[in-house]
Protein backbone atom coordinates (compact mmCIF):
# COMPACT_ATOMS: atom_id res chain seq x y z
CA UNK A 1 0.00 0.00 0.00
CA UNK A 2 1.25 3.49 -0.76
CA UNK A 3 1.83 5.71 2.29
CA UNK A 4 -1.55 6.34 3.94
CA UNK A 5 -3.07 9.75 3.57
CA UNK A 6 -5.08 9.48 6.79
CA UNK A 7 -4.51 7.13 9.73
CA UNK A 8 -5.81 6.35 13.19
CA UNK A 9 -3.16 5.06 15.55
CA UNK A 10 -4.48 3.24 18.61
CA UNK A 11 -7.25 5.82 18.91
CA UNK A 12 -9.41 5.86 22.04
CA UNK A 13 -12.33 8.24 22.50
CA UNK A 14 -14.20 8.30 25.80
CA UNK A 15 -17.28 10.28 26.80
CA UNK A 16 -18.72 11.04 30.20
CA UNK A 17 -21.69 8.72 30.36
CA UNK A 18 -24.99 10.43 29.67
CA UNK A 19 -26.95 9.02 32.58
CA UNK A 20 -24.46 8.48 35.40
CA UNK A 21 -22.62 5.16 35.21
CA UNK A 22 -19.07 4.76 33.99
CA UNK A 23 -17.38 6.43 31.06
CA UNK A 24 -18.46 5.39 27.57
CA UNK A 25 -15.52 4.00 25.60
CA UNK A 26 -17.08 4.88 22.24
CA UNK A 27 -13.83 4.15 20.38
CA UNK A 28 -11.68 1.73 22.30
CA UNK A 29 -8.43 1.21 20.43
CA UNK A 30 -8.53 1.52 16.64
CA UNK A 31 -5.82 1.42 13.99
CA UNK A 32 -7.00 2.33 10.51
CA UNK A 33 -5.22 3.53 7.37
CA UNK A 34 -6.70 5.10 4.26
CA UNK A 35 -4.44 5.16 1.21
CA UNK A 36 -4.71 7.66 -1.66
CA UNK A 37 -7.53 6.69 -4.00
CA UNK A 38 -8.80 3.97 -1.68
CA UNK A 39 -12.43 3.53 -0.66
CA UNK A 40 -12.80 2.05 2.82
CA UNK A 41 -16.19 1.11 4.26
CA UNK A 42 -16.64 1.26 8.03
CA UNK A 43 -19.60 -0.92 9.02
CA UNK A 44 -21.25 -2.08 12.23
CA UNK A 45 -24.38 -1.88 14.37
CA UNK A 46 -25.85 1.36 15.62
CA UNK A 47 -23.86 2.79 18.51
CA UNK A 48 -20.68 0.81 17.82
CA UNK A 49 -18.66 4.02 17.41
CA UNK A 50 -18.52 4.58 13.63
CA UNK A 51 -19.48 8.26 13.69
CA UNK A 52 -17.22 8.95 16.66
CA UNK A 53 -14.28 7.39 14.85
CA UNK A 54 -15.09 9.31 11.65
CA UNK A 55 -15.36 12.60 13.56
CA UNK A 56 -12.04 11.89 15.24
CA UNK A 57 -10.38 11.25 11.89
CA UNK A 58 -11.72 14.63 10.76
CA UNK A 59 -10.29 16.40 13.79
CA UNK A 60 -13.80 17.20 15.07
CA UNK A 61 -13.28 15.06 18.16
CA UNK A 62 -9.98 14.74 20.03
CA UNK A 63 -8.80 11.27 20.90
CA UNK A 64 -8.59 10.57 24.63
CA UNK A 65 -5.42 8.68 23.74
CA UNK A 66 -3.72 7.62 20.53
CA UNK A 67 -3.46 9.94 17.55
CA UNK A 68 -4.64 10.78 14.05
CA UNK A 69 -2.00 11.16 11.33
CA UNK A 70 -2.43 13.17 8.15
CA UNK A 71 0.19 12.20 5.56
CA UNK A 72 2.29 10.80 8.36
CA UNK A 73 2.15 13.92 10.55
CA UNK A 74 0.09 13.99 13.76
CA UNK A 75 -2.92 16.30 13.56
CA UNK A 76 -2.48 19.65 15.23
CA UNK A 77 -5.67 20.96 16.78
CA UNK A 78 -5.14 24.74 16.45
CA UNK A 79 -7.91 26.28 14.36
CA UNK A 80 -5.38 27.38 11.76
CA UNK A 81 -3.90 23.89 11.40
CA UNK A 82 -7.37 22.33 11.27
CA UNK A 83 -8.43 24.75 8.55
CA UNK A 84 -5.47 23.69 6.44
CA UNK A 85 -6.23 20.03 7.15
CA UNK A 86 -9.87 20.47 6.02
CA UNK A 87 -8.77 21.52 2.54
CA UNK A 88 -7.45 18.02 2.13
CA UNK A 89 -9.94 16.00 4.17
CA UNK A 90 -13.61 16.89 3.79
CA UNK A 91 -16.74 15.73 5.52
CA UNK A 92 -19.92 14.68 3.70
CA UNK A 93 -22.76 14.58 6.17
CA UNK A 94 -25.54 12.13 6.89
CA UNK A 95 -29.08 13.25 5.98
CA UNK A 96 -28.99 15.84 3.21
CA UNK A 97 -32.12 17.63 4.35
CA UNK A 98 -30.53 18.35 7.72
CA UNK A 99 -27.14 19.59 6.59
CA UNK A 100 -28.21 22.24 4.05
CA UNK A 101 -29.45 25.61 5.25
CA UNK A 102 -32.98 25.99 3.82
CA UNK A 103 -32.43 29.74 3.26
CA UNK A 104 -29.19 29.39 1.27
CA UNK A 105 -29.19 28.89 -2.46
CA UNK A 106 -27.29 25.99 -3.97
CA UNK A 107 -24.63 28.46 -5.10
CA UNK A 108 -24.10 29.85 -1.60
CA UNK A 109 -24.12 26.41 -0.03
CA UNK A 110 -21.29 25.27 -2.29
CA UNK A 111 -19.36 28.58 -2.21
CA UNK A 112 -19.38 28.62 1.59
CA UNK A 113 -16.33 26.36 1.85
CA UNK A 114 -14.34 28.61 -0.47
CA UNK A 115 -15.33 31.72 1.46
CA UNK A 116 -14.33 30.20 4.80
CA UNK A 117 -10.92 29.58 3.30
CA UNK A 118 -10.75 33.03 1.71
CA UNK A 119 -10.53 31.49 -1.77
CA UNK A 120 -12.53 34.19 -3.50
CA UNK A 121 -10.87 34.26 -6.96
CA UNK A 122 -12.69 32.20 -9.63
CA UNK A 123 -15.47 31.49 -7.16
CA UNK A 124 -18.18 31.19 -9.80
CA UNK A 125 -16.10 28.92 -11.97
CA UNK A 126 -15.13 26.67 -9.10
CA UNK A 127 -18.68 26.36 -7.79
CA UNK A 128 -19.87 25.48 -11.30
CA UNK A 129 -17.09 22.95 -11.62
CA UNK A 130 -17.90 21.26 -8.29
CA UNK A 131 -21.61 21.08 -9.13
CA UNK A 132 -21.03 19.51 -12.49
CA UNK A 133 -18.58 17.01 -11.03
CA UNK A 134 -21.28 16.09 -8.54
CA UNK A 135 -23.58 15.44 -11.51
CA UNK A 136 -25.70 18.62 -11.37
CA UNK A 137 -25.49 19.76 -14.98
CA UNK A 138 -25.66 22.35 -16.37
CA UNK A 139 -24.59 23.85 -13.01
CA UNK A 140 -25.98 27.33 -13.75
CA UNK A 141 -29.47 25.90 -13.71
CA UNK A 142 -29.03 25.00 -10.05
CA UNK A 143 -27.25 28.12 -8.77
CA UNK A 144 -30.33 29.94 -7.53
CA UNK A 145 -32.39 27.02 -6.35
CA UNK A 146 -33.19 26.43 -2.69
CA UNK A 147 -32.98 23.02 -1.01
CA UNK A 148 -36.76 22.57 -0.99
CA UNK A 149 -36.76 22.87 -4.77
CA UNK A 150 -34.48 19.84 -5.12
CA UNK A 151 -35.08 16.11 -4.83
CA UNK A 152 -33.35 14.13 -2.08
CA UNK A 153 -30.77 12.82 -4.52
CA UNK A 154 -30.05 16.31 -5.81
CA UNK A 155 -29.64 17.63 -2.26
CA UNK A 156 -27.11 14.90 -1.53
CA UNK A 157 -25.24 15.93 -4.69
CA UNK A 158 -25.15 19.54 -3.46
CA UNK A 159 -23.64 18.35 -0.17
CA UNK A 160 -21.03 16.39 -2.12
CA UNK A 161 -20.31 19.40 -4.34
CA UNK A 162 -19.77 21.47 -1.20
CA UNK A 163 -17.11 18.97 -0.12
CA UNK A 164 -15.51 18.82 -3.59
CA UNK A 165 -15.16 22.56 -4.09
CA UNK A 166 -11.96 22.70 -2.04
CA UNK A 167 -10.49 19.86 -4.10
CA UNK A 168 -9.76 17.54 -1.17
CA UNK A 169 -7.93 14.23 -1.51
CA UNK A 170 -10.07 12.41 1.03
CA UNK A 171 -13.72 12.58 1.89
CA UNK A 172 -15.31 11.07 4.96
CA UNK A 173 -18.96 10.32 4.23
CA UNK A 174 -21.27 9.34 7.10
CA UNK A 175 -24.22 7.31 5.74
CA UNK A 176 -24.21 9.25 2.45
CA UNK A 177 -27.21 7.43 0.99
CA UNK A 178 -29.15 6.20 4.03
CA UNK A 179 -32.04 8.59 3.51
CA UNK A 180 -32.27 8.17 -0.26
CA UNK A 181 -34.53 5.96 -2.32
CA UNK A 182 -33.03 2.74 -3.59
CA UNK A 183 -33.05 3.82 -7.21
CA UNK A 184 -31.32 7.13 -6.41
CA UNK A 185 -28.81 5.54 -4.06
CA UNK A 186 -27.05 3.74 -6.92
CA UNK A 187 -26.51 7.03 -8.74
CA UNK A 188 -24.78 8.63 -5.73
CA UNK A 189 -22.60 5.56 -5.18
CA UNK A 190 -21.64 5.58 -8.86
CA UNK A 191 -20.65 9.22 -8.38
CA UNK A 192 -18.31 8.35 -5.49
CA UNK A 193 -16.70 5.64 -7.63
CA UNK A 194 -16.30 8.01 -10.56
CA UNK A 195 -14.69 10.68 -8.37
CA UNK A 196 -12.18 8.10 -7.21
CA UNK A 197 -11.43 7.01 -10.78
CA UNK A 198 -11.22 10.52 -12.20
CA UNK A 199 -9.70 12.50 -9.33
CA UNK A 200 -8.06 9.79 -7.26
CA UNK A 201 -10.30 10.80 -4.37
CA UNK A 202 -10.01 8.51 -1.34
CA UNK A 203 -13.05 7.93 0.85
CA UNK A 204 -14.01 6.56 4.22
CA UNK A 205 -17.67 5.64 3.95
CA UNK A 206 -19.50 5.02 7.21
CA UNK A 207 -22.52 2.82 6.75
CA UNK A 208 -24.59 0.05 8.26
CA UNK A 209 -25.27 -1.21 4.74
CA UNK A 210 -23.05 -4.09 3.69
CA UNK A 211 -24.46 -4.00 0.16
CA UNK A 212 -23.02 -0.50 -0.19
CA UNK A 213 -19.58 -1.83 0.75
CA UNK A 214 -19.95 -4.54 -1.89
CA UNK A 215 -20.99 -1.90 -4.43
CA UNK A 216 -18.10 0.52 -4.01
CA UNK A 217 -15.49 -0.20 -1.33
CA UNK A 218 -12.03 -1.69 -1.77
CA UNK A 219 -11.63 -2.54 1.86
CA UNK A 220 -14.01 -2.98 4.76
CA UNK A 221 -13.54 -2.55 8.50
CA UNK A 222 -16.18 -4.12 10.74
CA UNK A 223 -16.61 -2.35 14.04
CA UNK A 224 -18.09 -3.81 17.21
CA UNK A 225 -18.34 -1.97 20.51
CA UNK A 226 -15.56 0.52 19.83
CA UNK A 227 -13.09 -1.77 18.06
CA UNK A 228 -12.47 -2.94 14.54
CA UNK A 229 -12.96 -6.69 14.88
CA UNK A 230 -12.38 -7.74 11.29
CA UNK A 231 -10.82 -6.03 8.31
CA UNK A 232 -9.49 -6.79 4.84
CA UNK A 233 -10.40 -6.58 1.15
CA UNK A 234 -14.14 -6.50 0.46
CA UNK A 235 -14.11 -9.68 -1.67
CA UNK A 236 -12.61 -11.65 1.20
CA UNK A 237 -14.41 -10.21 4.20
CA UNK A 238 -17.89 -10.15 2.67
CA UNK A 239 -17.75 -13.59 1.08
CA UNK A 240 -15.64 -15.57 3.56
CA UNK A 241 -15.76 -13.71 6.89
CA UNK A 242 -13.95 -15.28 9.81
CA UNK A 243 -15.19 -13.26 12.76
CA UNK A 244 -18.48 -14.65 14.13
CA UNK A 245 -19.86 -11.12 14.34
CA UNK A 246 -19.24 -10.42 10.65
CA UNK A 247 -20.68 -13.83 9.85
CA UNK A 248 -23.85 -12.99 11.78
CA UNK A 249 -24.19 -9.56 10.14
CA UNK A 250 -23.96 -11.12 6.69
CA UNK A 251 -26.25 -14.02 7.51
CA UNK A 252 -29.25 -11.81 8.30
CA UNK A 253 -29.17 -10.00 4.96
CA UNK A 254 -32.35 -10.80 3.05
CA UNK A 255 -30.78 -12.86 0.30
CA UNK A 256 -27.92 -14.40 2.26
CA UNK A 257 -27.35 -18.13 1.75
CA UNK A 258 -27.92 -20.46 4.70
CA UNK A 259 -30.03 -19.79 7.76
CA UNK A 260 -29.80 -16.42 9.49
CA UNK A 261 -27.90 -16.12 12.76
CA UNK A 262 -30.06 -13.52 14.49
CA UNK A 263 -28.18 -12.18 17.51
CA UNK A 264 -30.59 -11.60 20.36
CA UNK A 265 -30.78 -8.55 22.56
CA UNK A 266 -29.72 -5.01 21.95
CA UNK A 267 -26.35 -3.79 20.80
CA UNK A 268 -24.26 -3.62 23.96
CA UNK A 269 -23.34 -0.63 26.04
CA UNK A 270 -19.94 1.08 25.68
CA UNK A 271 -19.96 1.96 29.38
CA UNK A 272 -19.83 -1.75 30.21
CA UNK A 273 -17.53 -3.51 27.77
CA UNK A 274 -17.39 -7.22 28.64
CA UNK A 275 -14.03 -8.69 29.64
CA UNK A 276 -12.24 -11.15 27.37
CA UNK A 277 -13.54 -10.94 23.83
CA UNK A 278 -16.00 -8.02 23.85
CA UNK A 279 -18.37 -10.07 21.66
CA UNK A 280 -18.36 -13.20 23.81
CA UNK A 281 -21.74 -12.69 25.53
CA UNK A 282 -23.51 -12.73 22.13
CA UNK A 283 -21.13 -14.99 20.24
CA UNK A 284 -22.83 -17.93 18.48
CA UNK A 285 -19.53 -19.80 18.12
CA UNK A 286 -18.96 -19.71 21.87
CA UNK A 287 -22.62 -20.51 22.63
CA UNK A 288 -22.66 -23.50 20.29
CA UNK A 289 -19.66 -25.08 21.97
CA UNK A 290 -17.47 -24.77 18.88
CA UNK A 291 -15.07 -22.47 20.72
CA UNK A 292 -14.80 -25.00 23.57
CA UNK A 293 -14.15 -27.81 21.10
CA UNK A 294 -11.30 -25.75 19.68
CA UNK A 295 -10.03 -25.15 23.22
CA UNK A 296 -10.42 -21.38 23.15
CA UNK A 297 -13.54 -20.86 25.28
CA UNK A 298 -11.43 -19.82 28.27
CA UNK A 299 -9.65 -17.25 26.15
CA UNK A 300 -12.99 -16.00 24.75
CA UNK A 301 -14.18 -15.27 28.29
CA UNK A 302 -10.95 -14.02 29.80
CA UNK A 303 -8.48 -12.81 27.24
CA UNK A 304 -8.80 -9.72 25.05
CA UNK A 305 -8.13 -10.72 21.42
CA UNK A 306 -6.33 -7.40 21.03
CA UNK A 307 -6.31 -4.43 18.73
CA UNK A 308 -5.94 -5.12 15.01
CA UNK A 309 -3.12 -3.39 13.14
CA UNK A 310 -3.72 -0.84 10.38
CA UNK A 311 -2.76 -1.59 6.79
CA UNK A 312 -4.52 -3.79 4.28
CA UNK A 313 -3.95 -7.31 5.67
CA UNK A 314 -6.85 -9.67 6.39
CA UNK A 315 -7.31 -9.76 10.18
CA UNK A 316 -9.93 -10.92 12.65
CA UNK A 317 -9.90 -10.23 16.38
CA UNK A 318 -11.23 -13.65 17.37
CA UNK A 319 -9.54 -16.48 19.28
CA UNK A 320 -11.53 -19.09 17.43
CA UNK A 321 -10.82 -17.69 13.96
CA UNK A 322 -7.12 -17.65 14.79
CA UNK A 323 -7.06 -21.31 15.73
CA UNK A 324 -9.09 -22.58 12.79
CA UNK A 325 -8.07 -20.24 10.00
CA UNK A 326 -5.03 -19.85 7.87
CA UNK A 327 -5.52 -16.35 6.53
CA UNK A 328 -5.97 -14.33 9.74
CA UNK A 329 -2.39 -13.48 10.54
CA UNK A 330 -1.77 -13.48 14.30
CA UNK A 331 1.49 -11.60 13.76
CA UNK A 332 -0.50 -8.61 12.52
CA UNK A 333 -2.08 -8.19 15.94
CA UNK A 334 -0.84 -5.51 18.26
CA UNK A 335 -1.29 -6.71 21.84
CA UNK A 336 -3.04 -4.17 24.02
Amino acid sequence: MSAPILSAEDVHVEFEARRGGGRARAVDGVNLDIAPGEIVALVGESGCGKTTLARTLLGLERPTSGRVLHRGTPLAYSSKALKRFRRDVQLVLQDPSGSLNPRHTVYDAVAEGLRIHGDVPNERERVADALSRAGLRPPERFFLRFPHELSGGQRQRVVIAGALVLEPNVIVADEPVASLDASVRGEILALLLRLRDELGLAALVVTHDLGLAWNIADRVAVMYLGRIVETGPVEKILTAPEHPYTQALLSVLPDAPGSPVVLQGEPPDPTRIPPGCRFHLRCPVLASGAAAAAGVDGACRGEDPGVLAGGTAVQAACHYARTVSSSADPAAVVRP
Binding site: A182, G186, E187, L193, W214, I216, E235, L238, D255
Partner: peptide, 18 residues
Protein backbone atom coordinates in the same frame (compact mmCIF):
# COMPACT_ATOMS: atom_id res chain seq x y z
CA UNK B 1 -30.95 -4.15 -9.13
CA UNK B 2 -30.52 -1.39 -6.55
CA UNK B 3 -30.10 -4.07 -3.88
CA UNK B 4 -26.85 -5.84 -4.70
CA UNK B 5 -26.40 -9.47 -3.83
CA UNK B 6 -23.18 -9.68 -1.89
CA UNK B 7 -20.85 -12.04 -3.70
CA UNK B 8 -22.41 -11.34 -7.10
CA UNK B 9 -19.61 -10.18 -9.42
CA UNK B 10 -22.15 -8.32 -11.58
CA UNK B 11 -22.77 -5.74 -8.86
CA UNK B 12 -19.21 -5.50 -7.55
CA UNK B 13 -17.95 -1.94 -8.10
CA UNK B 14 -21.07 -1.41 -10.21
CA UNK B 15 -23.81 0.26 -8.20
CA UNK B 16 -27.06 0.32 -10.18
CA UNK B 17 -29.16 3.41 -10.08
CA UNK B 18 -31.90 5.05 -12.02
Amino acid sequence: AAFPRIGDPASRRRPQGL
